[in-house]
């Protein structure tokens, strides 16, 4: 009788343990391919060394012509002239992509330049 009770207790304990542990869950793994295209990085270029002192320098301002940007750059020009009376401000405008010819002109005529795209 006692032996039977023991087996019953063992059985109940096992059942309870299984219930507490919860059902054994299977894992599903989805392996998918990357949709991204490979990018061949272009060669990197360093920005030009900075001009430590702007006094007497030729400062270019390039604007892509988007309307209202001219008002902003007019004020910037005035402020630069106030701060740097001996510097010259040269204004340029054209498409957002300078192109080699215009970039060459800027490099030739200016000591440094600001590229202001207007948006």
């Amino acid at each position: 009788m006692r032996k039977g009770m023991n087996w019953l207790l063992i059985g109940v304990s096992l059942l309870l343990t299984l219930c507490w542990a919860g059902p054994v869950l299977a894992e599903v793994t989805l392996e998918v391919l990357s949709p991204r295209g490979e990018i061949v990085a272009p060669p990197t270029l360093s920005p030009s060394p900075r001009v430590v002192d702007l006094t007497g320098k030729k400062i270019g301002i390039y604007w892509n012509g988007k309307q209202g940007g001219n008002n902003f750059w007019d004020v910037v020009e005035e402020l630069l002239k106030e701060k740097l009376p001996t510097s010259r401000i040269l204004r340029f405008r054209g498409p957002f992509d300078l192109g080699e010819r215009l970039a060459g002109t800027l490099a030739k005529e200016c000591d440094l330049f600001i590229y202001g795209v207007g948006d």
């Binding site: 869950l25 793994t29 060394p49 900075r50 002192d53 702007l54």
Partner: peptide, 28 residues
């Protein structure tokens, strides 16, 4: 315009895009 370039700015490294061929996603 005037602050000297940092070493990092003067020696830019191309941004590396990590390409993984396959991606594994596991769930229940």
């Amino acid at each position: 315009l005037t602050r000297p370039l940092t070493t990092q700015e003067a020696n830019p490294k191309p941004k590396k895009v990590e390409m993984s061929k396959a991606i594994r996603i596991t769930a229940e």
